[in-house]
Amino acid sequence: MNRHTADRPASVGWTLDTVSFQYPAATVRAVDHVTTSIRPGQFTALVGPNGSGKSTLFRLLLGALRAEEGLVQFGGRRLDHWSRRDLARTIGVVPQNEEITFPLTVRELVLMGRYPHLGALQALGRRDHIIAESAMERCDVLPLADRPISTLSGGERQRARIARAIAQEPLAFAFDEPTIALDLGHEMRIFELARHFTSTGATVLMATHNLNLAARYADTLVLMHQGRIRAAGLPADVFRKDILENVYEWPLEITTHPGPGPDAGAVQLVPVRGGAAEYRDEHTDGGSEKNGGSEKS
């Protein structure tokens, strides 16, 4: 991949130093002493089972939650020293939940990405419209520009929201499970777009449940489990049978992508069918690291 080739300035990343967070009513920490970095210009996928702390970590990285302990830095500065406005000019976020209560067109939604660049009384200008149109073009939603959001399919809606993030002209993108409830084609388009962003020098952080696509598209995987980072690094280093079986509590096999295509040989995983009872038995019996896959052996 030819990264750092485009006309963008050097991109920005995050570093976390023993960051912890606990929700007020909770008994355990949602994020527990996490130390890691999200490197500039790379595609980092944040993975882990439901309730593993992914979303909390995601919100800590974006300043929607404030770390109780530890230090979150973004672009070499403490996150809480950034103004909301500067952050919005630097990170394009697509959060998981948005409720469009009132009629809104795709164009109006994408133009909201320009708001952080406008003064309090400044109106949207010609340049803002041009930027919004090129963002819509990149996400294949320009033909839908004047359609109400409520008439779009799930995949189109998600691409419209990504176009809004592009319109922010950020140095980093953060997507929280952007392909949930999307079909295969729409999911692939979003991973392709995310990969493309890094080719222009941008940093991409994506929380996702699609481990196999994460292993093919991302440079780095960060695997969360019970509020901690269980493994982080190259996909091939994180895709270890013992770790993944333990984290997901399901037997699985590690294999490689057969090709054709650019990522032939990439690590992939295949969950084993009918593994629930087996896994639970072995898990509760001995809690051993060796489990699952007995059908195969």
């Binding site: 909301r84 919005a88 469009i100």
Partner: peptide, 16 residues
């Protein structure tokens, strides 16, 4: 405008 979509979205687009 932003708040009517969601408070997280508003925050990420620079709203206090």
């Amino acid at each position: 405008d932003l708040m009517s979509i969601g408070e997280d979205t508003a925050l990420y687009l620079g709203t206090r």
